Structures are given as structure tokens and as C-alpha cells.
Simulated scan of single mutants.
Amino acid sequence: MESFGVDVLGIADELTAAYVEVFTAPPWEHRDPEETRVAFRARLEEDAHRDGFRALVERGDDGRIAGFVTGWVTPAPFRTDRAYGNVLKRLGEEQVKELLVGAFEIDELGVLASSRGTGLGRRLLTTAVEEQGSRAWLLTWNQAHDTIAFYRRIGWTEPEVRGPETDIVVFLSPKA
């Protein structure tokens, strides 16, 4: 498994291609591949410079990326762009401060179809959390039923929901 900081930008094209392959397949098949590519690449350029940014990449026998995880330490104040506003609505400001701020935030986890069922997703998450030596969290779309079942199966848990339902589900790492 390869570990990266800002130097992940050296493999940005390859990582972006892997991201598009994962996140334009079911249940995300409604996403346009070119729009997905452009948006992820722009986010990666910005995210790689965040405090505490890490990326892990596992390659298959063919040398291509088989899976990846990216993330960083969640800063204060908690953001409200992207899906973060829904996290605040769902958990409430107090829980966000207690459970998420200062924790390692898994931003993206992707395992290509050819590597699913091998334990790679679990290894990527476990390594990411262990590298940080602290608690971690992530969120996913509430329609990604297989993904939600996977997180639950490997011991990630959902904090108490204090606000209205949204289209996201928040998970805390087993060490949280």
C-alpha cells in the first residue's frame, strides 16, 4: 500500500480515472463521467493541501490502482459546504464538535469492481485510521445500501441522530 500527502498530485490523473470508474458505476450511475472527472480532479488539487491530508493507494497485480482512500483531519470551524450542512442538521452542533472536529475524516473510499470482496476496503480504512492513531469518521449517501451494509459489517457505527433525516449517513470508526 502506498501512502501519500500532497505528493498524491503526482498520480492525480491515475487516481482520478480510478475515482471515475468507481463513482459512475451503480449506485452512482446517474453521474456524468466527465463532470465527475473534472469535479474530483479540482477537489483533489485543493484537498491535497489541507492540513493532515493523507491518501492511500493499493495497486493490483496489473499495476493499476485497485483501491484508494483519501482524508484529512476535520478542522474547526466545521464546514457547511458540500454535504457538511446535512451532517450538522443530522447530528447537531454539539455532537459534530465532540465526535467529528479533530477526527480523521475519510473523504473518499473507492475499490474498483475487480477488487471487491477481497478485503481491500477494510484494509484501506483500517490503515488510514491506524496511520492517524485517532478516531475517524465518514459519510455516505443513504441510497448506497451495499456501502452502508459494508461499513456496519466491519464495525463502523452511526452516532445518535438528533435532527431531521437527510440524504447522508454518518459513520464513526470502531476506535471512535
Rank of each mutant, 00 (worst) to 15 (best):
P159R: 07
R122A: 14
R152F: 10
R123D: 11
F40E: 03
T127D: 12
R152C: 01
G110S: 10
A42C: 00
E46W: 13
T24Y: 11
Y19K: 00
A12N: 00
E58N: 06
F68D: 12
A113F: 07
D62T: 09
L120H: 11
A48R: 06
T74I: 02
T140E: 03
G67D: 14
R64V: 13
T24D: 08
G60R: 13
D146I: 01
Q132N: 13
R162P: 04
N142D: 14
D32A: 02
V22D: 05
E165I: 00
R116P: 01
E130M: 04
V57A: 10
P26V: 06
D146W: 12
E93R: 14
A48G: 03
E98I: 09
V8H: 08
D61V: 13
Q132M: 08
A66S: 15
L15S: 06
R152D: 13
G85T: 07
W137Q: 00
R116F: 12
E45G: 11
I168F: 08
R31A: 10
L120R: 01
R59S: 09
W137Y: 10
A144L: 07
A12I: 05
A103R: 08
L100H: 05
I11T: 01
G60E: 13
V129C: 06
A18N: 04
L56K: 05
N86F: 15
E21F: 04
E105T: 02
A39L: 09
W141S: 07
R79Y: 15
V96T: 11
E46S: 08
L99Q: 13
Y84C: 04
E45N: 02
L138V: 02
F104A: 10
A66M: 14
G63Y: 15
I106A: 01
R31T: 00
E160I: 10
H145F: 15
F23M: 01
T70V: 10
E160H: 09
D13C: 00
H145R: 03
N142P: 01
E160Y: 11
T118P: 08
L91A: 06
W137G: 00
L112D: 05
A17F: 12
L139C: 03
F171G: 03
P77H: 13
P75I: 06
E2K: 05
K97D: 13
Y19Q: 00
L91R: 02
A76G: 12
A76S: 15
G10M: 00
E130N: 04
V170F: 09
A12S: 11
T140A: 05
P75D: 08
E2D: 09
A25K: 05
W72A: 12
V6C: 05
E35H: 08
G60W: 15
E165D: 14
Y19S: 01
W137S: 00
A128L: 09
E2W: 07
L56G: 12
I11S: 01
D146V: 06
D146M: 03
P77S: 07
T36M: 13
R122V: 04
D51S: 08
